[in-house]
Amino acid sequence: MTDKWGGKYAIAVKSWENNWAELSNYPPDIRRLIYTTNSVEGYHRQLRKVIKTKGAFPSAESVRKLFYLVNCDITSDWTMPIPNWACILNQLSICFKQRVTI
């Protein structure tokens, strides 16, 4: 991994290598949840699309309001449940007893 991505993403690769022992101890369902970034990238793409079509904003508050409205619109379309959520929630409650309560 270092050979392929180390030059371009040095900090991310170093973080990955430093924390690999801890990350690899999670069950496969939790690891899949941690590694999945497609939904985050899609969300950011939709935010960028709205900002890109606007020429300028009169204030930071106007950008904040627009992000709020876009967020409401984006999240209203989220209908798909997370696959194996019951299993993942049980595993999280075991791994993080002090943080997750069922």
Rank of each mutant, 00 (worst) to 15 (best):
D29M: 04
D29Y: 03
D29H: 07
I30P: 14
I30C: 15
I30K: 14
I30Q: 11
I30R: 15
R31T: 10
R31P: 06
R32F: 05
R32P: 04
R32S: 13
R32A: 14
R32M: 10
L33H: 11
L33D: 00
L33G: 04
L33C: 11
I34W: 05
I34D: 05
I34G: 09
Y35F: 10
Y35M: 08
Y35Q: 06
Y35S: 11
Y35L: 11
T36A: 12
T36P: 01
T37L: 06
T37A: 04
T37W: 09
N38K: 11
N38D: 01
S39M: 02
S39W: 04
V40K: 00
V40N: 02
E41V: 04
E41Q: 09
E41L: 02
G42M: 07
G42N: 15
Y43C: 09
Y43K: 00
Y43F: 15
H44G: 05
H44Y: 12
H44D: 00
H44R: 01
H44E: 01
R45V: 05
R45L: 13
R45E: 10
R45K: 14
R45D: 10
R45A: 12
Q46D: 06
Q46G: 00
Q46I: 06
Q46S: 04
L47A: 01
L47G: 00
L47N: 02
L47R: 01
R48G: 03
R48E: 03
R48V: 07
R48A: 08
K49H: 15
K49F: 14
K49D: 13
K49A: 13
V50D: 13
V50Y: 06
V50F: 04
I51H: 03
I51W: 00
I51P: 06
I51Y: 04
I51S: 03
T53F: 09
T53L: 10
T53G: 12
K54G: 02
K54S: 04
G55N: 03
G55R: 02
G55S: 05
G55V: 02
A56C: 12
A56P: 00
A56V: 11
A56E: 05
F57D: 06
F57Q: 07
F57W: 08
F57Y: 12
P58N: 05
P58T: 09
P58E: 12
P58I: 06
S59A: 08
S59P: 15
S59V: 10
S59D: 14
A60I: 13
A60K: 08
A60F: 14
A60N: 15
E61Q: 13
E61N: 10
S62C: 12
V63P: 07
V63Q: 01
R64T: 07
R64I: 05
R64L: 09
R64H: 05
K65H: 07
K65Y: 00
K65F: 01
K65T: 05
K65I: 02
L66G: 07
L66Q: 11
F67W: 06
F67Y: 07
Y68V: 03
Y68H: 06
L69I: 10
L69K: 04
L69S: 12
L69P: 09
L69V: 13
L69Q: 09
V70Q: 13
V70G: 01
N71W: 04
N71I: 02
N71M: 10
C72T: 09
C72D: 04
C72F: 03
C72L: 15
D73S: 10
D73A: 11
D73M: 11
D73N: 12
